[in-house]
Design a protein around this nucleic acid. Structure first.
Lengths: 246, 246
DNA sequence: ATGGCGCCTTGATTTCGATCAAGCGTCCGG
DNA sequence: CCGGACGCTTGATCGAAATCAAGGCGCCAT
């Protein structure tokens, strides 16, 4: 479980160095972080944090995909966050976790003990600044998501999800999103349903429908080929220009 | 429109002084803010900012209620934020407004020119710290809202909305929320529908149903009397203990 | 190899909320 | 005083997604 962590023990070589909460830190600030950090790994399917748990750390996702979700007593669950490498877990000043965090694939996180991290937040403004930026980005994403949940049809929801994943994939690889591109869905049908506020049956049906209509092609259950991003975007219901919001 | 603003020209006497973005500022920091601020008023129903507009200011709501909303080409709209006194409008570093901001009642805002405000953000950490706190609070609210939009029934949505407004009302007045309490809905049925991802007809029907079932009483169209908060909370679908999340 | 399990698909039916439609009360301006 | 706009309610019908149900495929462990 805690296998080859030697390879990522050094902040300078960290794969998420430029996007995570530490992105703006100078070398000496990194040294402080280095001294309070430790790695932890979880295997696919494992619950990393239960809602209601006391949390004595905050963390950055280094590798893998995790979800943030809420569950009602009768079992209805809604995903409220999708955590990818460089995303932040936890909230400074908060004792009790309000959501479940679940590893969707094998996940490695870089943890900071909460108290020392909170102190750093006061002393090194670069961390707070970056954290604010990340929180505002998440807020934007949450609001786009709210439009999806409240007003989009099942088909539009599926198309939007595929587009969202494709977009993030392509900005990760810095690949130009023209022509035919393909995406590996990191989610099961059930997780997609929890993301979109649907049932897994509806997800399955709508994926099949998009395939039948030639909007997407499937390779196995998880790999999606997008012949034309244009066409896919038309199915999302969003503004067609898709101009990047600044 | 810009009538009696003399009365709120001084930060020290400001009604939102202790909750807004300036909450943590020292007297000298307030002086800086004072020098770049100006008030603006809007009347009920007026659109304050259009999505796509260039924004050269950020602002705090001082008085009244406004909404943040997104609209799709075909007219479907989803509210993504409800702005009450002390809430913040705009994002440092952003040029273009991504959402519509609409005054629901007569609204007064305290504006800061964007560039000077961004400079203050770097020089006075208290503002950035408070802004981070507010952003994280909004993120929590957005996530609760996502559960509502994705998984709750129409009846649960209505009950939740009334509970949310009642909660905020009572913490504003610091009134103890025991026994019978009453709430003035600041929203039309249509605005409630946009908040909840419903149609206005469904909102109307479910409000009537809650009334018929004795969960709430109505005084006029807008004033809601809650005989038992307990009973109302049972209708929201949320965890019954309702423990305050820290 | 075989049985079981996890993940997914597809079909039949039901249901909740959307849509279409009519009408009520209040406020406001002519 | 009247007409109309606005906000709201209620009824009838429709439809999209949920629910109920069955079965397929790939994979692992016995």
């Amino acid at each position: 479980m805690t296998e080859t962590l030697v390879e990522l023990s050094d902040c300078v070589d960290c794969p998420i160095r430029h996007r995570a909460v530490c992105a703006r830190c100078e070398t000496d600030e990194l040294d402080h972080l280095e001294s309070i950090k430790y790695y932890r790994s979880y295997s696919a399917g494992q619950t990393m944090i239960w809602a209601g748990d006391r949390m004595d750390f905050v963390a950055s996702v280094v590798k893998g995909v995790a979800t943030l979700s809420q569950t009602m007593e009768d079992g209805r669950t809604q995903m409220v966050g999708l955590l990818l490498p460089s995303d932040f877990i936890g909230r400074p000043g908060r004792e009790i976790a309000p959501y479940n965090v679940t590893a969707i694939s094998d996940v490695t996180v870089c943890c900071f003990r909460k108290r020392p991290f909170e102190n750093l937040l006061v002393t090194t403004p670069h961390i707070g600044q970056r954290l604010l930026e990340m929180a505002l980005d998440e807020l934007d994403a949450a609001r786009e998501w709210m439009l999806l949940l409240g007003r989009k049809t099942a088909r539009e929801k599926i198309a939007s999800l595929i587009a969202i994943i494709a977009r993030r994939d392509s900005e990760l690889k810095a690949a130009l999103p023209s022509g035919q591109l393909s995406v590996e869905l990191p989610l099961t049908r059930e997780a997609m349903a929890d993301y979109l506020g649907l049932t897994l049956e509806t997800v399955s049906r709508q994926v099949s429908a998009l395939k039948k209509d030639g909007i997407i092609q499937l390779e196995g259950k998880r790999k999606v080929i997008i012949p034309s991003l244009e066409t896919l975007l038309e199915e999302t219901g969003d503004d067609t220009d898709g101009g990047p919001l600044i």
